[in-house]
């Protein structure tokens, strides 16, 4: 009898975590759907088959790289060239994955492996700023639901774009282009209110990214990697010890 109550309890904790994970993923859905649809439309207009464009979303699952890939395929770039450019653009996920894996050390590998494959700029940001849920019991379910929901919305969106074409009027989808930036801002501000130095770190990264990408004309991928690493490194001198 007692074991059953404990089991039921664990079950309800898991369900609660799944719900929290889904709610945390909502802004990502809002941001992903219009972008994924735009990607699907663009890819099918470039003559990429529905199967291939959906496969790209399932297998690559990286927005900026997929847009770049479609663009390069259209202009007739070589496959090696496209793959190398993808590597450069997506290398930032190595840095993010390292930070996330280190943060979630208590999680088992059977969780961490699939979670790492679901890391994007957006899922990484939401997951890293919600470690409170993640560190609780059954935190894997929180992260898992978050990742799967974001992933599913990306795939569904690109498929819809490929099948239906422009279902969203252009003015609307362009305006929704700010959605993910607004989400990043919404994630950042509460942390800055708690600890102003996180804000300084972010501003240093912004300035560096601006200098690297606009002034030095560095590739977007390297620019984000370098400014993230450098700004956070400078940040370690601002923040002594692990206070969070």
């Amino acid at each position: 009898m007692e074991t059953r109550i404990i089991l039921n309890n664990q079950q309800s904790v898991k369900i609660k975590m799944v719900k929290k994970g889904f709610i945390a993923a909502l802004p990502i859905i809002l941001g992903y759907l219009p972008i994924a649809i735009t990607y699907g439309v663009l890819a099918s207009q470039s003559g990429i088959s529905l199967f291939e464009l959906t496969a790209m979303s399932i297998l690559v699952y990286a927005g900026a790289a997929q847009f770049m890939g479609v663009n390069m395929i259209t202009v007739g770039a070589g496959s090696i060239e496209i793959i190398v450019a993808t590597f450069v653009l997506n290398f930032r996920h190595f840095v993010m994955s390292l930070s996330f894996a280190n943060r979630t050390r208590p999680l088992e590998k059977k969780w961490k492996i699939p979670l790492s494959l679901g890391l994007t700029d957006e899922s990484f940001s939401v997951a890293s700023l919600n470690t409170k849920e993640g560190n609780q019991e059954a935190g894997g379910y929180f992260y898992g639901t978050l990742m799967v929901t974001a992933y599913a919305s990306w795939i569904v969106g690109s498929f819809l774009g490929g099948v239906l074409g422009d279902v969203i009027p252009e003015t609307l989808s362009r305006s929704m282009g700010i959605a993910l930036y607004a989400m990043f801002i919404a994630l950042l501000i509460p942390s800055v209110k708690k600890e102003i130095r996180f804000g300084y770190i972010a501003i240093v990264a912004m300035v560096l990214n601006y200098v690297f990408s606009y002034q030095w004309a560095l590739a977007q991928g390297w620019s984000i990697v370098c400014s993230t690493l450098l700004a956070s490194f400078i940040g370690t001198f601002m923040i002594k010890g692990r206070s969070f």
Partner: peptide, 27 residues
């Protein structure tokens, strides 16, 4: 410890780099 500290603040730096100057390209 120093590396843990570095990795811990990466999300805030990444957010900064993801927001700006990318946000200027919305339109």
């Amino acid at each position: 410890n120093w590396l843990n500290g570095w990795l811990d603040v990466i999300p805030y730096a990444a957010l900064g780099a993801l927001i700006f100057p990318g946000v200027l390209t919305v339109i």
